[in-house]
Amino acid sequence: MVEHRSMDGWVQVEDYLSATLVHGGAGMDAVVESIDAAGMPRIEVAPTAGKLLMLLARIQGARRVLEIGTLAGYSTIWLARGLPGDGHVTTCEFLPLHADVARKNIDAAGFGAMVEIRVGAALETLPALAGGEPYDLVFIDADKGNNLEYLKWAIKLTRPGSVIVLDNVIWEGTILDPGGDPDAGAIRDALEFMGASESLDATAIQTAGSKGWDGFAIAVVR
């Protein structure tokens, strides 16, 4: 896995933006603390990215959201914050420990009735969602090796006009020359699929901050 590195200036700017614009609240700080307490990896989205997900849900007018990769529920809560009272988030998490931590955090944030956590390999749990009401927004932030398959499922489970967000698409720039990094190669494959797909209209944004040099791709389903 690539090592993500941050420059002091990047983190200072991110901290300033978070304090000035994000206003996540003590509840979001508690989620981060739960990650550390459980010995989980600190791979949750940055606060600025979390609020972006919330705003995207609102801009989209989303009522149903699918998330692939729950971790401790940090991004899940941000997504739920962007939905109306009758909204619903389905989130897929591979590890039971992570799902347990996420459930406690989501319940504490007041979104327990709105969020369903599906535990297990996402490629095994996603097929059970087929045939249901389509999702308005999909956020993919899980194991990078399966990004392409997750994207294909996202298209199957959405509708024209739905939004798909794929996190971690720059990977410290290794997408230009993946070499022996299978994650970088898988990310590149996913980006090329997005660019060539007749079902998607996509772009990507580079970011620099506490999570290093990275970014996300965003697409609208045609």
Rank of each mutant, 00 (worst) to 15 (best):
3 E>A: 02
5 R>T: 06
9 G>M: 01
13 V>M: 10
19 A>R: 11
25 G>T: 04
25 G>Y: 01
28 M>P: 08
34 S>M: 04
38 A>P: 10
39 G>P: 12
40 M>R: 03
41 P>T: 04
41 P>D: 10
47 P>F: 09
52 L>E: 02
53 L>C: 04
54 M>F: 00
55 L>Y: 05
63 R>Y: 02
70 T>F: 08
84 P>G: 05
84 P>W: 00
87 G>D: 08
90 T>K: 07
106 I>N: 09
107 D>C: 01
110 G>D: 11
114 M>H: 06
118 R>Y: 06
118 R>C: 07
119 V>A: 00
122 A>H: 02
122 A>D: 10
125 T>E: 04
134 P>F: 04
135 Y>E: 01
137 L>P: 02
144 K>H: 12
146 N>Y: 01
147 N>V: 04
149 E>P: 01
158 T>H: 08
159 R>C: 06
160 P>F: 04
161 G>N: 03
163 V>L: 15
165 V>F: 01
168 N>H: 08
170 I>T: 03
172 E>I: 00
175 I>S: 08
175 I>F: 02
176 L>W: 09
182 P>Y: 00
187 I>T: 12
189 D>Q: 15
189 D>G: 07
191 L>A: 06
192 E>V: 08
195 G>L: 09
200 L>I: 04
200 L>W: 11
202 A>V: 11
208 A>R: 14
210 S>W: 07
